[in-house]
Design a protein around this nucleic acid. Structure first.
Lengths: 204, 204
DNA sequence: TGTTTTACTAAACAGTGTTTAGTAAATTTG
DNA sequence: CAAATTTACTAAACACTGTTTAGTAAAACA
């Protein structure tokens, strides 16, 4: 009778084992190196077994994406407590970029790949971590606009403007496009551009 | 004697044939659907033959990238003649985004993929079309800053700020991330954000 | 003990990029 | 013109990829 619960626990354990193995491979070999067969070898099961625990490779990537959002939260959470909305946006932006540069493969999973997105018909429900992060930015923008007074700017559009900029910067850096702007100056370029962006929006 | 030239011409013709076939497949089936075997079938040669004309698949992708830049030029060239630098930047931005949205696979090849980049050790020499496009933006920014007078902003940084924003927007749109900001409003969001960006930088 | 369910896997399918060895035809040479 | 050589090409294989199917042991239940 009680064995049913044990079974379920074991099943959850193997599912977790698959995930931690995937995580390890993603870290050591990147998204390109993450294959079902490699995961299978790492956990010492056959490739087919993985399909008894995850419907797809995409399903695994989707779980990794969620882990990625938790990782990102650790970078950004420091900004949550900042009272001044503009300073808060500053901190968030820098943390966002830092995360993107230090966790290329995770960033890709979260913001570039449409693979784990294909896994999302429900879209909004399943990208809720990303959505609430964006909402946090919208709220901060709203606060900042109120503070600056009398602005007819849409906080949503402003948030999207900021997001696009940092997203673009991270992508350009990751694909080495910033090298053509100025060689070996990626970090410098990013912080300067981010600063320029925030000044042109908030005038300080 | 003269047959040597004919031979060379035929060799160039087949090389061109491979490229046009690749182009067709990229258009109809996207980057995912573009495989060596499919190209071979399209031109009615064996897969191995392709490697007598291109060292790599990456080499083909690189050629397609260059075609992409020529396509993009047609979108942007309209802005070249605009005398007012700010208006010119406006037009360029809109054309850039339009190209990105209408030519997803090409855009990806040009600005996201590091595959044809791997093919570039010389980097700067081989991405020269992209580089001169960026230089055009830098020059326009420089002009605009001079016109506005007494700005201590770096035109290079300003250009990068604008590029990041449009690049980010195109990517977010292509990966359906804008759907989470507002459903079925992608185009509207983009033009509003682009406009907001330009206003916050040039105050009009 | 016998039956049923569960957990797992070997092997295959349909792809991918790429390399190697071998062949048939065109060209050059004696 | 015939023989030797070069050129142009390909079949087949290698090492991968994600995924499915059919079949097998072992565990659980009756």
């Amino acid at each position: 009778m009680g064995s049913a619960e044990r079974k379920e626990r074991e099943k959850a354990e193997l599912k977790e084992l698959i995930l931690t193995a995937s995580k390890k491979i993603l870290l050591s070999e990147g998204q390109e190196g993450l294959s079902i067969r490699k995961i299978a070898k790492a956990i010492e099961y056959s490739p087919a077994t993985i399909y008894l625990y995850y419907t797809d490779k995409d399903a695994i990537l989707h779980e990794l994406m969620e882990i990625g959002f938790e990782m990102m939260n650790k970078y950004i959470s420091g900004a949550f407590t900042e009272a001044d909305p503009i300073k808060r946006i500053h901190e968030t932006g820098h943390a966002y970029v830092k995360f993107g540069l230090e966790n290329k493969d995770w960033y890709h999973l979260m913001f570039n790949s449409d693979k784990p997105m294909k896994h999302i018909e429900k879209c909004k429900e399943d990208w809720d971590q990303g959505m609430s992060m964006f909402q946090f930015l919208v709220d901060s923008c709203s606060e900042a606009l109120n503070m600056m007074g009398g602005s007819k700017l849409d906080p949503k559009i402003l948030a999207l403007q900021l997001w696009s900029c940092v997203h673009g910067l991270v992508n350009l850096a990751q694909t080495e496009r910033l090298e053509i702007v100025e060689t070996d100056q990626t970090h410098e370029l990013i912080s300067k551009t981010l600063e320029s962006m925030l000044i042109s929006v908030f005038h300080r």
